[in-house]
Design a protein around this nucleic acid. Sequence first.
DNA 1: TCCTTATTGAAAATGTTTTTCATTTTCATT
DNA 2: AATGAAAATGAAAAACATTTTCAATAAGGA
Lengths: 151, 151
Amino acid sequence: MTVTETERWLELLEQKGSRITGPRKAIVELMVDADHALNPVDVFDRARVKYPKMGLVTVYRTLEVLSDLGLVERVHQADDCHMYLRAAQGHEHLLICSCCGKAAYFSGDDLGMLIQRISMESGFSIQGHWLQLQGLCQSCQPKKIQTQQGE
Amino acid sequence: MTVTETERWLELLEQKGSRITGPRKAIVELMVDADHALNPVDVFDRARVKYPKMGLVTVYRTLEVLSDLGLVERVHQADDCHMYLRAAQGHEHLLICSCCGKAAYFSGDDLGMLIQRISMESGFSIQGHWLQLQGLCQSCQPKKIQTQQGE
DNA sequence: TCCTTATTGAAAATGTTTTTCATTTTCATT
DNA sequence: AATGAAAATGAAAAACATTTTCAATAAGGA
C-alpha cells in the first residue's frame, strides 16, 4: 500500500515532466508515510536519514512541487502554519492533535444547508470551506491530564 | 457603537494593567472598525495616518497584546496566515473573501453530532473546531468573472 | 556512452518577526 | 501642576524563515 502510493506520487511527478531524483524519492517516501504534520526542517531531518546530502533548499522546492501536484498540503494550526501533510482526498477534513501534531482525515460532514444559508444572507458566492477538529490523540491525553488539567 | 467598542477595548487594556497610549489608541480604533483582515504592514500603514510616528515594532507588539486579551485573532488563508481581525465573539465562524480579504462572522453551525462521531471513531478528545467559508464577496464577484472564469 | 537540461546544494539575498536599548510617555503620587 | 517610577516606544541590530542565484552534478533520452 505504502510502496504503491509512493510509486503513484513518483509517476505523477514524471508525467508532469519532472525528473525522479534521490532527494525527491526520499521526501516522497517520508511524506506518504507521515502521520504527523511536518515542517520543512522536520522533513529535512527525516529525509537526511535516507539521503544524507539533502539540502534544506531542496526540501522547500520539493514540497512546493508536491503541493502544486496536490499531493501534499499545508496544515494550519492556531500558532503554526508551516507544516505539511499528504493532501486530503476528495472531501476529507483534518483532525489534528494539538499536542503532538498527529493527524488523521475524516469525512462525512454535511454543511450544505449551512453554506446555502450563509450564501443567501451574505451575498458571497461560496467557493469552499475549511473544517478542522483540534483535540488530543489517545497517547497525548494522559500527558495533558497530568500536567495541566484543563488548558 | 464603534466608539463604545473602542472604549471597551481600551478599558480591557487598562484593567490588565497596560497603559493607554497614542499608538495603541490608533491601532485599536482601526482594528475595531476593520472589515478586512489586515497584516501587520497594513495595520502599520493605516495607523500612521492617525499617528505618524508609529513604528512597525509597536504594531507587532500591540497586535500581540490585543491577541492575548482575545480581542483580535489571526486569520488563516490558504496562502497567507499573517492577517489579523477582531476576534470571533462566542461561537462565530469566519466567512472571508478570497479575493479582497473582506471578512464577516456567522454563527449557527451545528457540528455536535459530527464531533461526537469522530471523537468515538478516532479516540481523540476533541477540544475545538475550526470552520471557515471562503468565497467571493459581492464586489469581487464581477471582477473574477471578467478576468479568470473559474480559477 | 554521450549530451542536454533539470536538479541540486551552498552561499547570498530577501523579507518578516523579535530583541535590545536609550529615550519618551503615561499616570499615580505629590 | 510637578515629580518620578515604570511601561511603552522607535530605531537599529539580531534572529529566523524562505527565496534566489549560480556553478556543479545527475537524470534519462538519444
